[in-house]
């Protein structure tokens, strides 16, 4: 099997189906300081798959709405534009990536872990009073590099899986051994290409090595959210390992173990909500 380099994988990102124009336009519009509910609703409705998933998630217990909402403008009004923005970004990217065909890769497990991490990241952001939208989206996409590798370099991805099983090591160690680079670099390259906010790019790039980051960055949150998701068994399974928790990041977050356990309980209670990602 021939060797691949990070550059080859990054160059290959052009082969990914482009984010549809309607989604670009919507995400771009949502970056504006002032947005209009009618305009947002119109832009969502242009993509039927996105619109359907958006309504399904909004009506799950995820947002704890008191009544069923049937139309997109209703969802936007009830949730508020700020919360809806998180949902739109996440749903848009997931909807898009689920069109990728990845034979022999457990996509269900992948998405459950991603959605679980997004839930944990959101709970952390709420606790810390930071931007919940970016935390949620970064949590959802933190491992996206793995899916890209599996989709475009399936043989290499299988070698990584085999190495991991043989050595019972952390997946990122297997990637570094087999490839010489890892999923965080691929994911960050994609997030950059798709012009995600800089803090999301950095969080994807550094969620396994937060040590050198400044305090208060999204990196620490995604680092801990990833750990929490494994602890809560998103997706679970006998092979799973809790990633290494950095004491530097942990101390910077200043959460403490009592609060940490409460947050685990909060996310545990919403765990069925992670299923939206599969619907």
């Amino acid at each position: 099997m021939s060797e691949i380099t990070l550059q080859m994988v990054v160059d290959d990102l052009d082969r990914l189906p482009a984010l549809p124009e309607v989604i670009w336009d919507l995400m771009d519009y949502l970056q504006r300081p002032e947005v209009d509910v009618g305009q947002v609703a119109y832009r969502i409705a242009r993509d039927p798959a996105l619109a359907a998933k958006f309504l399904r998630v909004a009506n799950s217990s995820f947002y704890g709405l008191q009544r069923q909402v049937a139309t997109i403008p209703d969802v936007l009004t009830v949730l508020g534009l700020r919360a809806a923005r998180t949902l739109i970004n996440g749903v848009a990217v997931v909807t898009h990536f689920q069109t990728l065909v990845v034979a022999g890769y457990d996509q269900r497990a992948f998405w459950l872990h991603s959605a679980g991490t997004a839930l944990c990241a959101r709970a952390l952001a709420r606790e810390l009073g930071t931007n919940m939208e970016n935390s949620f989206t970064a949590g959802l996409l933190h491992d996206i590099g793995r899916l890209i590798l599996a989709a475009h370099f399936p043989e290499k991805s299988r070698s990584v899986t085999t190495y991991r099983a043989e050595h019972d090591c952390h997946p990122i160690e297997a990637e570094q051994e087999v490839l010489g680079f890892d999923h965080t670099q691929i994911g960050a390259a994609l997030a950059l290409r798709w012009k995600f906010p800089a803090e999301i790019v950095v969080a994807i790039a550094s969620h396994h090595k937060p040590m050198g980051m400044p305090a208060g960055s999204l990196v620490d949150q995604i680092h801990l959210a990833d750990v929490m998701a494994h602890v809560l068994e998103f997706p679970g399974g006998n092979d799973d390992l809790v990633p290494f928790l950095s004491n530097v990041a942990w101390n910077r977050l200043g959460i403490g173990w009592v609060k940490f356990k409460r947050l685990l309980g909060e996310v545990d209670a919403q765990r069925n909500d992670a299923e939206w990602v599969l619907s």
Partner: peptide, 27 residues
């Protein structure tokens, strides 16, 4: 134990394991 089988003797990981076990048992 299974989730932490590669955690080694790092202090933060030990504290994390304890918190997780407490959480699970309290539940």
């Amino acid at each position: 134990e299974r989730l932490f089988r590669r955690a080694g003797s790092n202090i933060t990981m030990k504290a994390l394991r304890r918190a997780v076990l407490e959480y699970q048992l309290e539940k």
